[in-house]
Amino acid sequence: MAKNTFVQPFLKWAGGKRQLLDEIRKYVPKGYNTYYEPFVGGGAVLFSLQPERAVINDINAELIRTYRVIRDDVDTLLEHLAKHQNDKEYFYELRALDRTEQFEALSPAERASRLIYLNKTCYNGLFRVNRQGQFNVPFGDYKNPNIVNEPVLRAVHQYLVENEIEILNTDFVEAVATAKEGDFVYIDPPYDPISSTSSFTGYSLDGFGRDEQIRLKQTVDSLTNRGCKVLLSNSATDFIKDLYKDYQIVIVTANRAINSNASRRGKIDEVLVMNYGKE
């Protein structure tokens, strides 16, 4: 089935896999039944593969709300996006909404359009919230951000509607609970930090520390026992390499484009972990 090239990420997302897609695709199984992605984020791998049956999930409720709005009400979303202004004062007014009671009264389409607008106009295209769950990235001051990317949004809408794509907002263990033999699970969790100062914890309110990495590894073991094919991305730290030492590990080099510290952007070693051989 021909892929629609307009089906691509509609957000810039920390840890996004666009520039690693060529490497990842080398190791995707030739055939599988249902595709699972428990940390879907910006959806680069999902939209590259465009499976006909998938279960996608993310712990970030605002992100998942946006996926669902694109699927269910893309016309209203586009109408709201067209109203936004690339203006500093306007940006901070809209950003501050999640600090008010008015935020809960917004419709799903209004909240989705706010998320996309903030993502397109904030500094470095970063999604980050504080401990109260409030968006806290400053204005990016870009001359002409692509706030209303109608071709991409309509193509993603069409893909989500025309295929069997279940969209969840739950814990990663729950997200893969129905995976069985013959299914393929791609796992792209928050990465193990390569240094004590590099941890990116602002993606959601729930920190993803070593205990969570261990719980995730136990989930990979469970999926393996069920006969699922699993491919996992993470940083190439000694901790991760030791954790998955019983699996096939491939080292790949990625460019980290999103980091608040410019000195930490650049080429970083990452791992692809598999419970199967390259096909």
Rank of each mutant, 00 (worst) to 15 (best):
74 V>N: 03
31 G>C: 10
16 G>L: 10
202 G>T: 12
231 L>Y: 03
244 Y>G: 08
120 K>D: 09
129 V>Q: 04
101 E>Y: 02
264 R>D: 14
238 D>A: 15
26 K>P: 02
144 N>Q: 11
72 D>S: 10
152 V>S: 10
145 P>Y: 11
176 V>A: 13
261 N>A: 11
257 A>G: 04
35 Y>S: 05
103 F>P: 00
147 I>V: 10
33 N>Y: 14
142 Y>M: 05
54 A>C: 04
139 F>G: 09
238 D>F: 12
255 N>S: 14
85 Q>F: 09
92 Y>C: 02
243 L>H: 01
155 A>E: 03
29 P>L: 11
51 P>E: 06
186 Y>P: 01
263 S>T: 02
138 P>Q: 03
183 D>S: 06
138 P>L: 03
39 F>D: 00
69 V>A: 05
135 F>Y: 04
151 P>N: 05
245 K>V: 00
184 F>E: 01
83 K>W: 01
67 Y>F: 12
256 R>Y: 12
95 R>Q: 05
134 Q>V: 14
127 F>M: 13
78 L>P: 04
260 S>V: 08
232 L>A: 03
251 I>K: 11
123 Y>N: 04
207 G>R: 14
178 T>N: 15
34 T>L: 07
167 I>D: 02
202 G>Y: 07
53 R>W: 13
244 Y>A: 05
203 Y>W: 10
227 G>A: 13
210 R>A: 15
50 Q>T: 09
142 Y>C: 06
277 G>E: 14
13 W>L: 02
133 G>Y: 09
257 A>L: 13
278 K>V: 01
199 S>D: 15
3 K>A: 05
149 N>A: 11
94 L>A: 07
45 V>Y: 07
202 G>R: 11
106 L>Y: 09
153 L>W: 08
31 G>P: 02
134 Q>I: 13
147 I>W: 05
168 L>G: 02
88 K>E: 15
163 N>S: 12
218 Q>W: 10
209 G>D: 13
65 R>N: 15
46 L>V: 13
33 N>Q: 13
71 R>V: 00
172 F>C: 01
92 Y>H: 06
249 I>Q: 13
269 D>L: 00
9 P>Q: 04
216 L>V: 07
202 G>P: 00
167 I>L: 11
246 D>R: 01
148 V>F: 08
253 T>V: 12
175 A>F: 11
15 G>T: 08
40 V>P: 01
269 D>G: 00
86 N>M: 10
94 L>T: 06
66 T>L: 10
199 S>Q: 15
194 I>K: 07
123 Y>Q: 05
262 A>C: 05
210 R>I: 14
109 A>Y: 12
125 G>A: 02
22 D>I: 03
106 L>V: 13
165 I>A: 09
58 D>C: 06
197 T>R: 04
130 N>T: 03
229 K>L: 14
199 S>A: 15
70 I>L: 06
227 G>M: 14
126 L>K: 06
230 V>Y: 03
121 T>L: 11
80 H>Y: 15
201 T>V: 10
247 Y>W: 02
233 S>L: 09
275 N>K: 08
79 E>P: 08
260 S>P: 00
239 F>D: 08
145 P>S: 08
249 I>D: 01
121 T>P: 02
44 A>E: 02
38 P>L: 06
251 I>L: 09
170 T>R: 14
234 N>L: 06
235 S>K: 06
266 G>F: 08
195 S>H: 01
154 R>P: 00
205 L>C: 12
45 V>E: 00
151 P>L: 03
